[in-house]
Design a protein around this nucleic acid. Structure first.
Length: 567
RNA sequence: UGGGGCGUGGUGCAAUGGCAGCACACCGGCCUUUGGAGCCGUGGAUCUUGGUUCGAAUCCAGGCGCCCCAGCCA
């Protein structure tokens, strides 16, 4: 194969399982579903599931449904439905149709009635606490183990042997809102001594007198995850229900319901979820960051929400390639943020237009350059892409260069500008530093240099070489800009585990109010991805005002000088 | 210590009984009108013990470690 395109975007064990199901006739088509709960914004952790669902359907010529899991009206809002659709679409995911768990509330209720009639479900009047106790415990020593005993099996509820007629009557009245919240539940009748606690008569419906974003006040009972998800899969003909490893333990229950109901046999397959270092995935903590103003909103560029990544300037294709390039397993794993950044750089290197921008300006005067003269220098837009063409950059006697690019007394191996040293001004001339001007405090406020008129474009006719090329802007022509330098938000590799106060990086945002950028940047549009030569990848932020653009740093360039300086 | 899942360089993945390889990271070098990009190279791994086999990361048995499960959350 000539290119590096992956043969498949989905894990091998899933691809093999799906192929097997098609081959042996369990299914004759493929349909997957993407089941977000509309109670928060999407973050990078969700992308793995989204992309596996999407590509599994796509690669087998099947289709994907976007199904909102809206079974808990106390936590869900329509606002998130729109946000999730928007973010998923931005990522590049396409779906055949949008459905809701609530679309199936009526049918689901009929199925519950069937189970009751089969003697496989009953109404339980125990209190929540009673149920918790009678469910039994995990053994001593495990995370939630009972402190004094070995495993304690569950005991049957006193209501477990109610007659079908009574159960039917009670369920009907639960549905009609005749009972207070928490007074009763409908449970599946399975096995109170089962080693898998989920099979100890799981709750199917609980009473909630909540207003639902789509069914309004019609329902007074709402289904639990286990009594909804698998059934919805089956009802809409989903063949493969792909989910993360935490649901492995739910699979026997998923299958139990569908078998008893003799329903369409959707198959659940699990994979490991994506964990990314330095990324916060906990919805609760994310919410706290937003609500306490630590970040500017759900789209703060320091967040790994999809909105944050978008605003930061990360191309969606980079997210796709990163996630699908991770490989395939059921292993618990923590992927390093550096790997994500490498993929981002890889994309941006190929696509971003190169521009010159001086973040922390220092005035440079070319003493022997004619006063008032302006030359238009030819500059390459993207050395990785000849099609991107060239542009003109104005050059004149007074310029700005980067403060970091000048040292009055250079450290070892410093090749940039210092008194007596000749460097190249990118796309312009070779210049030699001659003197500096200082303020009362002794700070260098202005650098003087002379240029060699024979080196226009940057090459010396005599073949002499310089070790450094630095970027610049013409003071007279440059546009003032604000530049926001982002670093990781947390100092902790696994921020979900830490206390916010202790793990926040105080330097995660540095705002540069007095940057200068070359004139061509005046035409940039919101979201445009750019490389500021030698400093990093940036994009134009929505906060930009006419005459005052704002740029976000997406990611730095690799900087071997900074690294060599030993940070 | 009930049930379930998982153990390959620092990190993420390959190798489906036959020379343990790739990417990121790290280190060194080359090249360069971005100290970018690119190119070349070094070091470093099969959780453990035993067994089967000419041959084991892979098969078998035991041990160890990590993760998930006590919502009327999803």
């Amino acid at each position: 194969m000539e290119n590096n395109e992956p043969v498949s975007r989905i894990p091998a064990f899933i691809r093999e399982a799906v192929a097997e199901d098609l081959k042996n006739g369990r299914f004759n088509y493929v349909r997957t579903r993407l089941p977000p709960e509309p109670n928060g914004y999407l973050h990078i952790g969700h992308c793995k599931a989204f992309l596996i669902d999407y590509f599994t359907a796509k690669e087998f010529g099947g289709e994907l449904y976007l199904r909102f899991d809206d079974t808990n009206p106390a936590k869900e809002e329509t606002e998130f439905v729109h946000a999730i659709e928007e973010d998923a679409a931005w990522l590049g995911i396409e779906w055949a149709k949008v459905t809701f768990a609530s679309d199936y509330f009526d049918l689901l209720y009929e199925w519950a009635v069937r189970l009751v009639k089969m003697g496989l479900a009953y109404v339980d009047d125990q209190t929540q606490e009673e149920m918790s106790i009678s469910r039994g415990t995990l053994p001593k020593g495990t995370k939630w183990g009972d402190s004094e005993s070995a495993i304690r099996p569950g005991v049957d509820s006193p209501w477990r042997s109610r007659s079908v007629e009574e159960n039917l009557d009670l369920l009907e009245r639960m549905k009609n809102g005749e009972f207070p919240e928490g007074s009763r539940v409908l449970r599946a009748k399975i096995d109170m001594s089962h080693p898998n606690l989920l099979l100890r008569d799981p709750v199917m419906y609980r009473i909630m007198n909540a207003h639902h974003h789509r069914t309004s006040d019609k329902w007074h009972i709402y289904p639990m995850y286990d009594w909804s998800h698998g059934q919805n899969d089956s009802m809409e003909g989903v063949t493969h229900s792909l989910c993360s490893n935490e649901y492995i333990i739910h699979r026997p229950l998923y299958e139990w319901f569908l078998e008893k109901l003799e329903a369409f046999p959707s198959r659940q397959i699990e994979f490991s979820r994506l964990n990314l270092t330095y990324a916060m995935m906990s919805k609760r903590k994310l919410r706290k960051l937003v609500e306490t103003g630590v970040v500017s909103g759900w789209d703060d560029p320091r967040l790994t929400t999809l909105r944050g990544l978008r605003r930061r300037g990360v191309p969606p294709q980079a997210i796709i390639d990163f996630v699908t390039g991770l490989g395939e397993t059921k292993n618990d794993s923590w992927v390093e943020m550096a790997q994500f950044e490498a993929v981002i750089r890889d994309h941006l290197n190929k696509s971003a237009l190169r521009r010159m921008a001086v973040l922390k300006p220092l005035k440079l005067v070319i003493d022997n350059y004619p006063e008032g003269q302006v030359e238009q220098m030819d500059a390459v837009n993207n050395p990785e892409d000849p099609e991107a063409g060239t542009r003109k950059v104005p050059f004149s006697k007074v310029l700005y260069i980067e403060q970091d690019d000048f040292r009055e007394t250079p450290p070892p191996k410093y090749f940039r500008m210092y008194p007596g040293n000749e460097v190249r001004l990118r796309y312009a001339y070779l210049v030699t530093c001659t003197s500096v001007v200082k303020d009362e405090a002794g700070n260098v406020v202005e650098v003087h240099a002379t240029y060699d008129p024979a080196t226009r474009g940057g090459d010396a006719p005599d073949g002499r070489r310089v070790k450094s090329t630095i970027h610049w802007v013409s003071a007279e022509h440059a546009l003032p800009a604000e530049v926001r330098l982002y670093e990781q938000l947390f100092n902790a590799e696994r921020p979900d585990d830490g206390e916010l106060e202790e793990i926040l990086n105080p330097n995660s945002l540095e705002v540069l109010e007095n940057a200068f950028v070359e004139p061509a940047l005046g035409e940039a549009k919101i979201g445009d991805q750019l490389q500021f030569e030698r400093t990093g990848y940036f994009c134009l932020d929505a906060d930009s005002q006419p005459g005052k653009p704002v740029f976000n740093r997406t990611v730095t360039l690799k900087d071997s000088w900074a690294k060599a300086q030993g940070k």
